[in-house]
Write a protein that binds this DNA or RNA. Structure first.
Lengths: 131, 131
DNA sequence: TTTGACCTTACCCTTAGGGGAAGGGTTATC
DNA sequence: GATAACCCTTCCCCTAAGGGTAAGGTCAAA
């Protein structure tokens, strides 16, 4: 039975984050003591650890919620979980490709810029083009 | 002398975005007609085009502001511009690397998940680990 | 004159919390 | 007993880049 700051220390989350997860109903409502202080039994610590791991893997909080529900559902099929993961992989790969394109174009423009004390600059020129 | 929606059409921006850029002082304050309608002379359209291009290259609005100021500064040196671009390239490349790592780990975990009707799932297991 | 299309400001919503205020609880020390 | 040093609570505002919508003013054509 740990306090919120102890739960934060154990999970690497901030106190703010833990309260936030409660507010958006990502985790179960923690019990309180007589003076209103939250405390965190193991079951809640497990939920928090799960969220930390899923977040680190690239899932946002809404996705964490779905995954956490699946993790606690005895009758889940791993197919559902795998679909979500594969979708996330595709999503990240798409983002990567887009950023690679971006960086490629930016490099091309940047190479043409002399980078000296003169004002003439291919980067500025490229951004000044209409359309 | 075009209206805001015409400026939006010309630049591919939304009316909301154009008003937003004005609010955060990213562009010059547009003149108004007698009834308070904004209108956009060529100089403002050029600023908007510049922002569109710089944004597309991966710069955020604060960075666009700096670049736009440089573009309008006769006494700039291209060195300053190039430094900003090179920094942005590094930043994007770092993000790409991180996402590649992410996707790699996620793929590794996902491969171990049978993806069938059973509940046993390596993805859930991976996220359930403390620490 | 009325309709439709345009314009204005103002407010709330999004993500994932951070910062800080104002106030209450607990413990150790003086 | 008082006070300091922390812990906890709720509440509100802030971030980036706008989107959505409401309420109301303007303008041109039918």
């Amino acid at each position: 039975m740990v306090t919120i700051s102890q739960a934060a220390n154990k999970t690497g989350l901030s106190v703010k984050s833990i309260r936030h997860y409660e507010e958006i109903k990502l985790i179960d409502t923690p019990p309180r003591d007589e003076s209103g202080y939250r405390f965190y039994p193991d079951s809640l610590l497990k939920q928090l650890h799960f969220i930390v791991n899923a977040k680190q893997a690239g899932f946002n909080l809404q996705e964490c919620k779905i995954l956490l529900a699946l993790s606690e559902n005895e009758h889940r099929s791993s197919k559902n979980v795998k679909e979500i993961a594969l979708q996330k992989i595709e999503e990240i790969e798409a983002r990567i490709k887009q950023q690679q394109l971006l960086v490629q174009q930016l490099k091309k423009i940047t190479k043409q810029c002399p980078g000296d004390q003169q004002s003439e600059c291919a980067i500025i020129d490229a951004f000044s083009v209409d359309q």
